[in-house]
Nucleic acid binder design. Structure first.
Ligand code: FES
Ligand code: FES
Lengths: 146, 146
DNA sequence: CTATACTCTACTATTATAATAGAGATTATA
DNA sequence: TATAATCTCTATTATAATAGTAGAGTATAG
């Protein structure tokens, strides 16, 4: 698995929307500014996230984006897979890969599968509700630290 | 972590050398043919592996490549990191990454670290001696299966 | 009506990946 | 010592992925 900028931006945006869930739409402009994301790039990412059903949009004045589902219903892994593709560290682990000739004998295959499985278990056990809670706690801690 | 073709080729080559450890040098040609690797690409990979001290070479007739260390002394993780870079799924986890502004508050950081650690633990617990043993066992099984 | 905000498609720049090419250096051995 | 086999080194190329940028178009609240 490799988290690209696009993936990083998508996750931070969904987290932002999670932190304001139920408070009405947030504009691309605000989302981009708060997470320091190039606005035109974020536009594209949001259209992708919309096509996948993670977010919905309101056009015109008072427009913006909001989550289609509650943060508790969105797993970290879902967003990662949608934006940055399959979790496995090598395409072989999935079906149909030219490199994988000796499917039955390749000794690396089990290792890549194991890594994929433990990584999947981690990112599928975390929802954006969890992340939002942690973000609130963590910013509270920072306030105390300052 | 992302295993590239180059990484895949390097691992298969070190495994081949491990399976013939102590039997003298093997030519690039043989290594390339047996693993179905483009020969000129493998030349470069072997030079890299040599520079890192994984293998050594003999020039001229009866030349070829052999392992610098016993297979039991080469961890899978060492080769993966050398060829395909750091294990973490996002550069943020390492020091000095522009994306990582709120080091103290980013809630994703711990997750990427956890994935890096479990992946590292997996690939650092396996040596090429282990892999060679598995390869022998697995090919024995295939013989019986046919 | 119009300012604000999302939509859609195309384009571009940079880097990484996966090779390919070819001339050069070394060595066993006939 | 000639020579075939083999590694060495640098340069070049092709393709794809990544990370944007650009701009015209559509919808809506007030
Ligand atoms: S060749 Fe596909 S996992 Fe090894
Ligand atoms: S911004 Fe670096 S891990 Fe989140």
């Amino acid at each position: 698995m490799k988290i690209t900028y696009k993936g990083d931006y998508a996750l931070k945006t969904i987290l932002d929307l999670s932190l304001h869930f139920g408070e009405g739409p947030i504009t691309i402009n605000d989302l981009a500014r708060r997470a320091d994301i190039p606005i035109k790039f974020l536009e594209q990412i949001l259209l992708d996230l919309k096509s996948a059903g993670f977010v919905e949009s309101r056009r015109g004045k008072i427009g913006g984006y909001l989550l289609s589902r509650a943060p508790s219903e969105i797993k970290l892994g879902e967003v990662v897979r949608f934006i940055d593709g399959p979790i496995e560290p090598i395409a072989c682990v999935d079906k149909s890969y030219k490199g994988c000739k000796d499917l039955s004998t390749c000794v690396f295959r089990n290792i890549w599968s194991k890594i994929r499985d433990s990584t999947s278990a981690t990112i599928d056990s975390i929802t954006f509700e969890d992340l939002a809670r942690r973000a609130k706690e963590s910013s509270a801690v920072v306030v105390y630290q300052i």
